[in-house]
Simulated scan of single mutants.
Amino acid sequence: MSQLLGRQDCIESLRKDLVDLQGAILDVFSRTGPVRFSSWKFPDKLSCNLDMVALLEQYDFVDGEDAFNQHSHIVLLELVIDR
C-alpha cells in the first residue's frame, strides 16, 4: 500500500473525488443552507468556509517531489474525510 502513496494517478483520483464531493455538498447547501460545524482537518475554521479551490491548488502532484507528493496524498485523504 505504501508504494501507492504520492503517485500521480492516486492524487488525481483523490482530487476528482473531492470535486465530486464538493459538488454534492453545494447541491445540499443550496437547499438547506450551510451546515456550521468545525472542520475536522482545520478545526479553527468552519467546514462550510473552506476554500476548496485554494486547497486543491496547493496540494497537487509535483513531478520529482516525492516527499511533497506523499504529503499532498495524505492531506487530500484527510480532506475527503473532512467533507
Score class of each variant (00 low, 15 high):
Leu76Thr: 08
Leu5Ile: 09
Val75Pro: 10
Cys10Thr: 00
Phe42Leu: 03
Leu4Glu: 15
Asn69Phe: 00
Cys10Met: 01
Asn49Trp: 12
Cys10Phe: 00
Val35Asp: 12
Val80Tyr: 00
Gln58Trp: 01
Gln8Glu: 14
Glu57Ser: 14
Ile74Glu: 07
Lys45Gln: 15
Tyr59His: 15
Ala24Ser: 12
Ile11His: 07
Leu50Pro: 12
Gly64Asp: 08
Gln3Ser: 15
Val28Arg: 14
Ala54Ser: 13
Trp40Asn: 12
Phe68Leu: 01
Leu76Glu: 09
Ile25Cys: 11
Ile25Trp: 08
Trp40Thr: 13
Pro34Met: 02
Tyr59Ser: 14
Pro34His: 07
Val19Asn: 05
Lys41Ala: 12
Met1Gln: 07
Leu5Ala: 08
Leu21Tyr: 15
Glu12Met: 08
Ser2Lys: 10
Trp40His: 11
Gly23Arg: 04
Leu14Glu: 10
Cys48Asp: 06
Pro34Gln: 11
Arg31Asp: 10
Asp51Ser: 05
Leu18Asn: 14
Val80Asp: 00
Leu21Phe: 14
Asp63Leu: 05
Gln22Trp: 03
Leu79Trp: 04
Gln22Ile: 01
Leu77Val: 12
Ala24Cys: 03
Asp44Arg: 10
Lys45Cys: 06
Arg36Ala: 13
Val53Met: 01
Ser2Phe: 06
Val62Tyr: 07
Glu65Leu: 00
Phe61Asp: 07
Glu65Thr: 00
Gln70Tyr: 09
Glu65His: 02
Leu21Met: 15
Ile81Trp: 12
Phe37Ser: 09
Lys41Asn: 12
Ile25Tyr: 13
Asp60Met: 08
Asp27Met: 07
His71Phe: 09
Ser39Gly: 09
Phe68Lys: 06
Asp9His: 04
Gln8Met: 04
Asp20Glu: 12
Lys45Thr: 02
Leu56Ser: 07
Arg31Ile: 03
Ser2Leu: 05
Leu46Arg: 01
Lys45Tyr: 10
Leu77Glu: 15
Cys48Ser: 07
Tyr59Gly: 14
His73Trp: 08
Gly23Ser: 04
Lys41Thr: 09
Leu5Asp: 11
Ala24Pro: 02
Leu26Arg: 12
